[in-house]
Design a protein around this nucleic acid. Structure first.
Lengths: 332, 332
DNA sequence: ATGAAAGCGCTAACAC
DNA sequence: GTGTTAGCGCTTTCAT
């Protein structure tokens, strides 16, 4: 393989100084038009690429953005990653994705690696847990422009946060079901390990109260959220035979519950009312449409871009943005 | 924000030369044990991180791996990305994901950017089309260790390829449909821009031949693959009213076709037999189960790791690996 | 065992 | 309009 082509290669090739080459390639005004064109032509011919490391080392920064997610198969994270990646493509940023598995140590290591490559900014869905137990490393964010997504965990107090407020939509879901005649409305959601779990359950309760319904213990299923937990909870509700409607409070839970309904031959919408959480594309096209609590993805991604572009590190006080989840009623 | 901490900062702080610091930090034998420990302690306190750009510039390479995908919402790509990202996490690689949208120009630009950051290797699902029409840029792969995934498009002849052999499964799909009484079996797939498109169509034809069926021109829909292409083709087949069964030859195509069937009120399995491509989790639980040609994900990801570790650039002849797709019959 | 010098590729700051 | 110099952070080589 040929030795790599640098501005000096081109300079030597053309018998000019490497600075002229540099200037020509970055459209500096102080170059003869002919020279500039000649240089560009030759550079293209030789297959020159500007080594990013060199500019980075000079302190000119990088075009790297980090994204830290628990995983990338959950359709919400996948579509957020997709949107952010598309945005990065449009702005010629490069997106480094790290999976944290919701583990603090993994998250910490990924942050470290992003510092090493001098990422311009890092978008992170913070792992649950207390970061201060991580060995008191006060530096693991130094020089990093951090944007927290979905979950908030203040560390330096200077991280921006882009959050989702789903309380209104969850309460609305309960009230909608009540308005359409349901009195036994079940809830399947995360337990209180995460603040989002607590908040969603509280929103469900608020919906009940505002509908004049009283809480029935058997209709509330909470546990660490997962696909199978959603399925088990739905099956339990079905076999207990009390609930006439189900509201879900989590992405995986929603899919698990839906799976349980469909594979047991129940039709969401006719046999039992169902309101899911999140909005994978196939919700719109199965069983006449699955009602759901939609978490907006594009607005989150676009706001992320805005924050990326404005920069957070220089700001004294954290910027916090909240987007409303939305109740989408379809056939189920 | 404090100026960034380099080995010189630490050296000055400790009153020793920056070389000793460098050696200490990289566990070079020629350092006093006490010195080494002191240096490491001080480095941690000051929040030192080794700037990756500096090492990269010296020619020591990077730990960056690129992944070029059409998108990351398609569940197949998402789960591959997830597996690869997990592997990268385990080996302290950093994964840069670029979305190509199956567009050659976008792919080309992403490759360029990955060359700029001196990615160690690039895993790419090649976009359809003729790369030679891209302006004859013979350099856009220089210095890049390319691993083609799923689709193969020989350019330099030295790219490794990790492929799926789905010919058997596709033929089997046709034969299965014939065995269950179908005589008008349609095929929706990619056109011949990609070898995979040609191969799949050929496998479909082979299935027809081995079933004693003759090819009907109207039942074959090929075009550049996409969700909407799948949908349009399915609608065309429905309105022409000839086909009694559909076999899909692509991930997006399959979802697009399924979408078209479901939203037009057709039941895959009863109104028209349907065999999809790829195996997103919801295929198992809608409409009693969607039959499909399943592509293995984990084996692909693990083989990718193997190739990543061995390196391809130095190899004279391309390494090619093939994994078998599998026909999964469900209710549809 | 430790230090000094050189150089990776690039551009800002000076010459001229 | 063009060329020379210096330095970003790091490690290899060559002293000491």
């Amino acid at each position: 393989m040929a030795a790599r082509v640098t501005i000096k290669t081109i300079a030597k090739d053309l018998g000019i100084s490497h600075m002229t080459v540099s200037r020509a390639l970055s459209d500096h005004p102080n170059v003869q038009k002919d020279t500039r064109e000649l240089v560009k032509k030759r550079a293209a011919e030789l297959g020159y690429v500007k080594i990013a490391a060199a500019t980075a080392m000079r302190g000119d920064g990088t075009r790297i953005v980090g994204l830290l997610l628990p995983n990338i198969v959950n359709e919400f994270y996948a579509s957020f990653a997709n949107e952010l990646a598309r945005i990065c493509e449009a702005f010629s940023y490069q997106l480094i994705i790290h999976l944290t598995d919701d583990d603090l140590k993994t998250e910490h290591k990924a942050m470290q690696q992003l510092r090493e490559v001098q990422a311009k900014a890092v978008v992170v869905v913070p792992a649950p847990g207390d970061p201060h137990l991580m060995g008191g490393d006060r530096h693991h964010l130094d020089g990093l422009d951090v944007i927290q997504l979905i979950r908030q965990r203040s560390v330096t107090g200077r991280e921006a946060a882009i959050l989702v407020d789903d309380a209104g939509a969850i309460s609305a879901a309960v009230k909608h079901l009540h308005a359409t005649g349901h009195k036994k409305i079940a809830y399947i959601g995360a337990n209180s390990d995460l603040s989002s779990g607590r908040n969603r359950l509280e929103a469900y309760r608020k919906g009940l109260r505002e509908s004049g319904l009283s809480e029935i213990h058997e209709l509330i299923k909470t546990a660490p959220p997962s696909f199978s937990m959603g399925g088990n909870s739905a099956e339990a509700l079905l076999s207990e035979g009390v609930a006439t409607a189900i509201v879900c409070g989590g992405f995986e839970i929603s899919n698990g519950a839906l799976h349980a309904l469909l594979t047991s031959g129940r039709k969401p919408g006719s046999d039992i009312a169902f309101i899911g959480y999140g909005d994978p594309s196939f919700y719109t096209w199965i069983e006449g449409g699955i009602s759901t609590i939609r978490v907006p993805v594009s607005p989150l991604a676009n706001q992320t871009l805005q924050v990326l572009k404005s920069g957070t590190a220089d700001d004294e006080n954290a910027q916090i943005f909240e987007f409303q989840a939305e109740l989408v009623i379809r056939k189920s």
